[in-house]
Design a protein around this nucleic acid. Structure first.
Length: 1115
RNA sequence: GCUCAAGUGGCGGAAUUGGUAGACGCGCUGGAUUCAAAAUCCAGUUCUUUCGGGAGUGUGGGUUCGAUUCCCACCUUGAGUACCA
């Protein structure tokens, strides 16, 4: 019987669908295993051979795990909201739901053809109402939550409100926006409802705010940072500008540290982790305050500390009294600006605790010099709180509450002379620096042109110039500013800042190399240690003090930290980077001019899109304040609109909807006409971004049809997390970061049981296309020979000439060849030949017209619908064929190198496609596709089939297998098992080929070999395996069979073919018994005549014998 | 610029802890079968050679009895990222 892949594959695909073979149960005695693919966006172009690569790998793993006795969840779905469908809708007026539906049908058909073991009963689509109901629900959960930094997790907003009622917001340590005002419980109670809502909005994990957004005018929407590549939109490459808009944001920054820490416990590829780490951008350094000159400086009372003193302090910190320890337990958990230090020196005094950012000292009373201390601290701008030991031990809670209160409500500073205004400082410039060790190298400061202080500090003399500069920068788009990094520009403000240590005056400049939205929008410039500062200083002739010992900075800044010794830096002189850094921060904190700080690059994520084809927000606006629609009224269904474009007055597309108002009485969406009614309110016009639906879909698969809940508690508890997640690395800083964020939030709220959703992740590499090119000759009239009409006629006679690849080595040869051809064929007069020139150009040829030997189907090319221009082209062949040039490029329609899997399945079968995709190379690696290679796996399948047959009839013997047959089988079991566990799928395909080749030579047709062999092959080539399995008389699907068990006894050998090397080079092999001892091996080898010949009389210096491995003779 | 990954025949790639470099497949060459083609089967295929050998895993060094594998420097390619202070 012939191997008929079409018949077999149709038969088994139908069988699996009818019998729901791969339907996973949420209850099982077997251990669970969850294998997930990144679900596709169903684009109009359908799948090309690159798309299924990851799905095939995960399918092999899923099928393998089933053979290994696991209850496997292997679902699939569609990320079906998104831009392309909407752009198509704008162009054609087709409803995106319709095109999406059609595209999904194509995808489903293509996926089914490849024979995946997906559990389709759990399919999800992010654009279906049953699904996005729960996306809306999660949005509401985020709205109703705030981030408590003391417990380091998200909590319900109700706990915040009850604290506000009891104590105001002074005891709250939350992740919030920048300008939150402090208030007491009394004040909270008298705030209006609206004021209360405004305050709460600042605390919520999703919040409305006026933010600078990336606005893309062409697309008419805002884009997230990860949707912009090189200053233009990722989709379409349109320019992006910055614009202030009221937008929903997600407070992902609250999770920055946890997103970083979580990377440690997940098995994800290092490059992916690196790019997330990069994106989060944690940098450790210090905040430093510079006073603007014109303020009265406080006298300098510092006592300098050496590094030794600093080390000695560590000792003191370890030995705390009981009261001290109790209080420290309470204080140490405070984070961020309320962070406390213990046993700290402020000037000459050692204080018990200090919060540097808030200038608050907490001490135990009873110290001898209390009055003196209080005065000194007050001069330095510190408030002091004192408690007795008893208070701390007996009523720690009250002590803590007093401290919290004082932190929020600092009392005016007091000295013995009564109330005195200590600081007369008009302005301060805060900067963030990662190099506080270089602080003595500061020679100027630079503010971003947008910095709020600029207008306040600029001198009258400089005002005009500064204003002009600010105007000029504002005009330039973000993209211009980014593209142009070489031009140095800036203006002196005329104002000076005071160096926090030396009190020397340093100039304050503005310059556009400082970005307003990173750090504080201001930098302390250290020209000797930072190249940008250096260039700026050179350009404007600002001094460049050198603070590095023995380093030449005449040409460029010295950026190296390692091994550099600091000089000319007062107390830092003579120290290396690490020590100088610590001591600098220590001194900054001691003098109250700065503190150690961790900064993150990760910004809060903008969550509003001005698009139609996305999830609507479950939000309406009452008096301008957002209100959530109750869970029981979800989903809020996307309304119908006539046009998918923004409205004429610039509102998002949903502004076109006629029925888009919320009736708060009737609890339903009603016509906009009813907005006149008092109880009807406008609904949100923005929609959610693409990443909303994909940030939690892996949880939905666990209980996909649940209409009561996001997913049932039991199913979430059972499946917990994805065990293996396969997808592309392009989602590193988008989907994979946002999904981790939502998972952590859902975990905080007790909705999901784990805070990382995927234990292991593999990035499959891209499959590249092998483009084919032909060489086209284009004739031109040489300019000096141009004699008007006559020449025109020459060109018209000349047909397009296309030249085979190996006929020329240079442009000159090409030209000569073409001219000769044209003359020979009579297209060109010899006389005219000199007046034209021939230019070579390359043209893509459709890869389906080229065979494995790079021969082009010339007629096919002429008649190809995309090659209308070449219908009458002349081809210059070599040896009767046309050879194309090949190049590896990304697969794309425009390069005519896209290979469709449908055609492959049709011609070679799905099993061949699956095997070949795996055989191409390591899963994670990018690799080129060449269809010709598929004949290898195709003939392998035919050989495999033949093993079970004798001519037309199935012939399998029940007799005992031979030793060799068993050896082949068990070798294969071992290797395939190891390969799958290591995701090295390419090598197991080779292993199958070797096994089949060996068994063919052995003429093996034993059931005891061929039955387990079918199981081994089945994860890779499931259709042929099912067919052979059933032909062998089995009644159930092969997917339920146990994986064969490897038995090492069949691989035991009695002898080994030893490689005999001389000085490490293998010269010949020698068959020796494995029972021989080291000495016996050495003796036998040295006596061998080939050894004697190799040595040619020399005496071996040394003989290395590794029994079972190698013999190496040195000499 | 910075970070990461990778360089092995004509091509895709193999060599899991340092131990016979080039498995397996494509392509190519020759042969069998065939009227012919497709398909199938057999043999060969890193380079070089005076047919004894010799050289060889991006380049140059190092460690080792022995290095594709470990270390150092450099070159090339790919990916990510960037006035991030």
């Amino acid at each position: 019987m012939q191997y008929n892949h079409i018949e077999i594959e149709n038969k088994w695909q139908k069988f699996w669908a009818e019998n729901q073979t791969f339907k996973a149960s949420n209850k099982s005695d077997k251990p669970k295993y969850y294998v997930l693919d990144m679900f596709p966006y169903p684009s109009g172009a359908g799948l090309h051979v690159g798309h299924p690569l990851g799905y095939i790998a995960s399918d092999i793993y899923a099928r393998y795990k089933r053979h290994k006795g696991f209850n496997v969840l292997h679902p699939q779905g569609y990320d079906s909201f998104g831009l392309p469908a909407e752009q198509y809708a704008i162009q054609t007026g087709q409803h995106p739901a319709k095109t999406t539906e059609e595209n999904i049908a194509t995808y489903r058909r293509q996926l089914d053809t490849i024979g995946f073991s997906f559990d389709w009963s759990r399919e999800v689509r992010t654009s279906s109402t049953e699904y996005y109901k729960w996306t809306q629900w999660i949005f509401i959960q985020l709205f109703n939550s705030w981030y408590n930094k003391d417990s380091d997790k998200a909590e319900d907003i109700s706990s915040l409100i009850s604290t506000f009622k009891k104590e105001g917001n002074r005891t709250i340590n939350a992740e919030v926006g920048e300008d939150v005002k402090s208030f007491s419980s009394e004040e909270w109670k008298i705030f209006s409802k609206r004021e209360q809502e405004e305050i709460l909005l600042q605390y919520r994990l999703t919040f409305l705010s006026d933010t600078q957004v990336n606005w893309c005018p062409e697309l008419g929407t805002v884009l997230a940072n990860d949707e912009i590549v090189n200053g233009v939109s990722e989709r379409g490459g349109h320019p992006v500008i910055r614009k202030k808009m009221t937008q929903w944001s997600m407070r992902i920054s609250a999770y920055a540290q946890r997103l970083l820490d979580g990377l440690e416990k997940i098995d994800w590829p290092q490059p992916l982790k690196d790019s997330q780490t990069n994106w989060i951008g944690r940098s450790q350094g210090a905040m430093v305050s510079f006073d603007v000159d014109g303020s009265t400086s406080s006298e300098n009372l510092e006592v300098k500390m050496s590094y030794k003193d600093l080390e000695a302090l560590k000792e003191v910190r370890l030995n705390l009294s009981k009261a001290e320890a109790i209080l420290w337990d309470e204080l140490k958990n405070k984070k961020g600006v309320s962070k406390f230090r213990k046993k700290y020196t402020i000037g000459p005094f050692l204080v018990d605790y200090v919060c540097l950012a808030k200038h608050m000292i907490v001490e135990f009373s009873g110290k001898e010099d209390e009055i003196e201390r209080t005065n000194f601290f007050a001069k330095k701008g510190f408030n002091v709180l004192r408690f007795t030991n008893e208070e701390a031990i007996e009523n720690i809670l009250e002590v803590v509450s007093k401290i919290n209160n004082a932190l929020q409500f600092p009392s005016p500073l007091k000295t013995e002379k009564g109330v005195e205004k200590i600081a007369n400082i008009t302005h301060k410039i805060d900067v963030f620096t990662t190099r506080p060790d270089t602080i003595f190298g500061v020679s100027f400061m630079t503010l971003a042109p947008e910095h709020e202080l600029v207008s306040k500090i600029v001198t009258a003399a400089q005002k005009e110039e500064v204003d002009a500069y600010i105007k000029a920068t504002a005009k330039r788009s973000e993209r211009d500013r980014m593209a142009d990094v070489k031009t140095i520009s800036g203006v002196f403000t005329g104002a000076y800042a005071l160096h926090p240590f030396t009190r020397e005056k340093v100039q304050i400049w503005i310059g556009d190399y400082v970005l307003a939205n990173y750090g504080t929008g201001a930098v302390m410039a250290v020209p000797c240690g930072d190249q940008r500062d250096y260039d700026f200083a050179k350009h404007f002739n600002i001094p460049i003090p050198n603070i590095f010992k023995g380093v030449d900075i005449s040409e460029s800044a010295h950026v190296d930290k390692d091994g550099t010794v600091i000089a000319n830096s007062d107390f830092l002189s003579g120290l290396k980077y690490e020590k100088a850094l610590k001591l600098a921060i220590f001194e900054l904190e001691k003098r109250g001019v700065g503190y150690g700080k961790i900064n993150y690059r990760l910004r809060d994520a903008v969550f509003s899109r001005q698009r139609y084809w996305g999830e609507p927000f479950p939000v309406y606006y009452k008096d301008g304040m957002p209100q959530m629609i109750a869970e029981k009224h979800l989903p809020i269904v996307l309304p119908e609109v006539e046009k998918y474009l923004p409205t004429e007055d610039g509102k998002p597309p949903l502004g076109n909807a006629k029925e888009w108002a919320w009736d708060s009485r009737g609890k339903k969406v009603v016509s906009n006409e009813k907005l006149k009614n008092k109880t009807v309110y406008p609904l949100e016009l923005n929609t959610m971004p693409g990443w909303a639906g994909s940030s939690w879909y892996f949880n939905r698969y666990m209980d996909a049809s649940n209409s009561e809940q996001f997913a049932s508690k039991e199913s979430l508890e059972y499946w917990k997390e994805v065990d293996l997640y396969i997808g592309g690395s392009e989602h590193a800083t988008g989907h994979l970061l946002y999904a981790r964020f939502w998972q952590k939030f859902l975990f905080d709220k007790g909705i999901v049981p784990v805070d990382e959703f995927a234990k292991k992740l593999i990035n499959q590499g891209m499959i590249l296309g092998t483009s084919a090119f032909v060489f086209k000759a284009t004739p031109f009239i040489k300019s000096d020979c141009f004699t008007a009409h006559a020449s025109e006629g020459i060109l018209q006679k000349i047909p397009t000439v296309i030249v085979s690849k190996n006929l020329f080595n240079s442009e000159e040869e090409f030209e000569v060849l073409v001219k000769n051809y044209l003359v020979d064929k009579g297209f060109l007069n010899q006389d005219n030949a000199d007046s034209i020139m021939i230019v070579k150009s390359v043209v893509h040829a459709d890869v389906s017209l080229v065979n494995a030997s790079d021969d082009l189907d010339v007629d096919g090319f002429r008649n190809h619908p995309l090659n209308q221009d070449y219908k009458n082209a002349e081809f210059i062949l070599e040896d009767g064929v046309y050879k194309v040039a090949r190049e590896v490029e990304k697969m794309s329609k425009s390069k005519y190198n896209v290979v469709n899997p449908d055609a492959i399945c049709e011609e070679y079968g799905a099993d061949a496609l699956r095997l070949f995709e795996m055989f191409l190379g390591p899963l994670e690696q990018a690799k080129p596709w060449k269809t010709s290679g598929i004949s290898g796996v195709s003939s392998f399948l035919k050989k495999l089939w033949k093993l079970y047959f004798n001519g037309e009839t199935l012939e399998v013997s029940d007799s005992e297998p031979t030793k060799e047959e068993l050896k082949t089988l068990h070798k294969t079991i071992k290797k395939v098992e190891e390969d799958i566990e290591n995701f090295s799928f390419n090598t197991s395909v080779s292993t199958f080929m070797i096994a089949v080749n060996e068994l063919t030579i052995l003429k093996c047709n034993k059931r005891q070999i061929l039955e387990p062999l079918a199981i081994l092959v089945s994860p890779y080539a499931p259709h042929i395996a099912e067919e052979l399995w059933s032909l062998l008389g089995n009644k159930t699907s092969i997917s339920t069979a146990d994986f064969p068990i490897f038995n090492p006894k069949y691989l035991l050998e009695s002898s080994k073919n030893y490689p005999i090397s001389f000085n490490g080079k293998m010269r010949f092999t020698l068959e020796l018994s494995l029972d021989l001892s080291k000495e016996e091996i050495e003796k036998t080898v040295l006596e061998n005549e080939k050894t004697i010949a190799q040595l040619a009389g020399r005496l071996p210096k040394k003989v290395i014998v590794v029994p079972g491995k190698i013999v190496n003779i040195v000499g």
